[in-house]
Design a binder for these strands. Sequence first.
DNA 1: ATTATTAGTTAGCCTAACGAACTATGTCAA
DNA 2: TTGACATAGTTCGTTAGGCTAACTAATAAT
Lengths: 109, 109
Amino acid sequence: MSPPRMSALSVLVFTGPKTISELAAMERVKLPTMSRLVSAMEEEGLARREPHARDGRVVTVHATAKGRRALDRGRELRLRALAELLGDASAQEVAVIREAAAIVDRLVL
Amino acid sequence: MSPPRMSALSVLVFTGPKTISELAAMERVKLPTMSRLVSAMEEEGLARREPHARDGRVVTVHATAKGRRALDRGRELRLRALAELLGDASAQEVAVIREAAAIVDRLVL
DNA sequence: ATTATTAGTTAGCCTAACGAACTATGTCAA
DNA sequence: TTGACATAGTTCGTTAGGCTAACTAATAAT
């Protein structure tokens, strides 16, 4: 799965269904871009659109079971790659990287 | 300037003229991709192709003066953005990030 | 001298970003 | 209540950058 799809899907999985606009804002892309991303994910069976109950203009996007599984697989692969990369690092070095990651995480909030 | 062009240009500026193949290898893209990147940079006046003296198949790519200036400007902007991001960080935190960056640098070598 | 290899280019496809223009729905004010 | 405006999404066309396959031109090898 491509990074943009993986990222959008993980938002859906970890923070629940979202409208296209919300997803676009969270992924820092424009509405049309997210609309097409969602269409692509829908065609791959990773997500599905559902109409909004009260507002006919709005559509909510949900992750599917297949989407959740695909996300898990992707995370597996990335973890493996990360483990491979960190194979040569000492425990102290890993600790420094982890700490730096936490700091950056907070800074970009 | 886009990230791929910025990156390729910085290779030319900091490590000297390169063939398309060498550039492609260093930027981890395929030859045709780099060929097009170089064409684009050439049209922007950031780089120029020159024929190889001995081997008629080879072309060497050089950064132009304009390319060097553009790279400098780009670096300025990134530094400013980085300073902005790190504005809220303590000296210790910056030190941790710097150390982590050095470690990762070594790991990806 | 032919054949094979190598360097680069070109063409065609895909994904993903954008802005502009459009549709459909909802909201508000006269 | 209806006409005007606002909002949510979609569609269209463009650009950029990645890839593979197919090509040309030059060099190397048999």
